[in-house]
Amino acid sequence: MISARGLIKRYGDHTAVDGIDITVPKGQAFGFLGPNGAGKSTTMRMIGCVSPPTAGELRILGMDAATQGPAIRARLGVVPQDDTLDTELNLLENLVIYARYFGIKYKVARERARELLDFVQLSDRAESKVEALSGGMRRRLTIARSLINEPDLVMLDEPTTGLDPQARHLVWERLFRLKKRGVTLVLTTHYMDEAEQLCDRLVVMDGGKIAAEGTPRQLIETHVTREVVELRFNTEDHSAYAEKLDGAAERVEVLPDRVLLYTDDGESSVSEVHGRGLSPASVLERRATLEDVFLRLTGRTLVD
């Protein structure tokens, strides 16, 4: 569905996307992870054919993004980061008019709009203005809008950022249904649970480059250990423990408030800690998550 080779996007001196290769096969849910400014949204805009690449080859649905933009966009569904809904129209009109941009006949547009409002559970608000909607409702409406042309590929830029837990779960559930129907999904997120829930395959982007790629499980196995032990000591300064814990696990990471032990066997690491005569105030053994991978690869410093 998507194949990118050496994709580059520059704005003046700033390189937002720095030579990435991606392949997304049909029916897959593909995720971009990365901190703010990693180049995720720019990549999404290039795939959405609204931002011409500076260099590289980009083919979408077998067509060339540089020359066949309108024909590609006809088969894409896009959920942008900021909803870009039409605030002067009500919900139903938002969908019907959007269908008209695709050249869909008015009668068909109305039928689909009704179905889609149903799909995102907004039928009872069909005549409301967009301004009266909550953030979660807007997101759902935007998702409905992206489906109006029955797209082969749906692109979602941070679909659940800023939503409350109920709204997030509803969005996830709807996206899961789309996936089951065989729609290819491409999404960006900085929620690791979202990535684990929805994505078959992921790339982690950092500084405009791809830092890692694989299934969620592969990423965890390749970049971190199976388990993580979090230790807290009664001290202001955990750095003193770096030396004392050296060798107790595959890797030891000291944070200001705790120490992390990356290990394939949590229990033996814990007994090793006690064996060295150390008594942490609290011990937490857990499975490694994508969040560990993410922080490992993109660092812990704030980007903005």
Partner: peptide, 14 residues
């Protein structure tokens, strides 16, 4: 303000 055209351009409209 409305960023209306950003949404419109995600369709075949140019």
């Amino acid at each position: 303000w409305m960023k209306l055209y950003d949404g419109v351009l995600a369709t075949p409209m140019r």
